[in-house]
C-alpha cells in the first residue's frame, strides 16, 4: 500500500517537475501530509540531506522519503517512479525529433509556467518557515538565534554567493555549538 502511494506520488510529480527540486516541495509536502509519512521537521531534514548530496534535489528527496517510508524497496521504487516520466518524454521527443524549444506554443506555455514555478518556490518557503517555527518570534534565545542564522544564511547565499552546500555544512556546525 505504501509502495503504491510512493510510486503514484512520484510518478505523478515527475510529469510536472519544472524549475528544479525546490519547486517540487509543495507536491512532496501535500503527499507527506496526506499519507502521514513523516513530521514536517523530519521532512525538512530529508530535504536538507537531499540538498547536500550530489544529483537532482527532487530525485534525491524521492529516494530519501521512499527509504524512510518503506526501506530499500521504497527508495528504488521512488527513484524509478520519478525518473520514468523523464524517460518516456525524452524518448517521445527524441523519436519524433521534436524541437520543442522553438515551438511558439511551448514557448507561450513556459512564459506562464515559469512565473508559476516561482510562486511554487515562494509557497514552499512560506510553508517550511511555518513548519519550522521561524514565524514565531518570542524573544527566547533559540528564536532570536534562529533568526540570526536565517539572515546570515541568506547573506552568504545572495551577497557572498556561497554554494548552498557550504551554507548547510556551516549551519550544522553552528547548530551543534549553540543547541547541544
Amino acid at each position: 500500500m505504501e509502495l503504491w502511494e510512493l510510486f503514484h506520488t512520484f510518478f505523478h510529480m515527475g510529469f510536472f517537475s519544472f524549475g528544479g527540486g525546490y519547486a517540487m516541495m509543495p507536491f512532496i509536502e501535500a503527499a507527506v501530509t496526506k499519507y502521514g509519512w513523516m513530521s514536517p521537521e523530519q521532512l525538512t531534514n530529508m530535504i536538507a540531506i537531499a540538498g547536500m548530496s550530489p544529483g537532482p534535489i527532487a530525485a534525491n528527496s524521492a529516494i530519501l522519503i521512499g527509504y524512510s517510508t518503506a526501506g530499500i524497496s521504497g527508495a528504488i521504487l521512488s527513484a524509478f517512479a520519478i525518473l520514468l516520466p523523464s524517460l518516456i518524454l525524452v524518448l517521445i521527443a527524441a523519436a519524433f525529433f521534436v524541437k520543442m524549444h522553438h515551438n511558439p506554443l511551448v514557448e507561450a506555455m513556459f512564459y506562464g509556467l515559469k512565473p508559476l514555478v516561482t510562486s511554487l518556490i515562494i509557497f514552499a518557503a512560506i510553508s517550511f518557515a511555518e513548519a519550522n517555527h521561524l514565524v514565531s518570534l518570542n524573544g527566547s534565545f533559540r528564536s532570536i538565534s534562529l533568526w540570526i542564522i536565517f539572515a546570515l544564511s541568506l547573506f552568504a547565499l545572495l551577497k557572498l554567493r556561497w554554494n548552498p552546500i557550504y551554507v548547510i555544512a556551516l549551519s550544522g556546525l553552528i547548530g551543534i555549538t549553540l543547541y547541544s
Binding site: G20, Y22, A23, M25, E41, T44, N45, I47, A48, G51, T118, I121, I122, A124, A125, F128, A129, N132, L134, R142, L146, I149, F150, S153, L154, L157, L158, P164, V167, I168, S171, G172, L173, I174, G175, I176, L178, Y179, S180
Partner: peptide, 20 residues
Amino acid sequence: EAAFVSIRISIVAIIIYAAI
C-alpha cells in the same frame, strides 16, 4: 539533532534564494 535545528532554518533561506 542540534545541527538540524540550525540546518532547517538555513533550508528556508536556500529555498528563498532559489525563488529569487
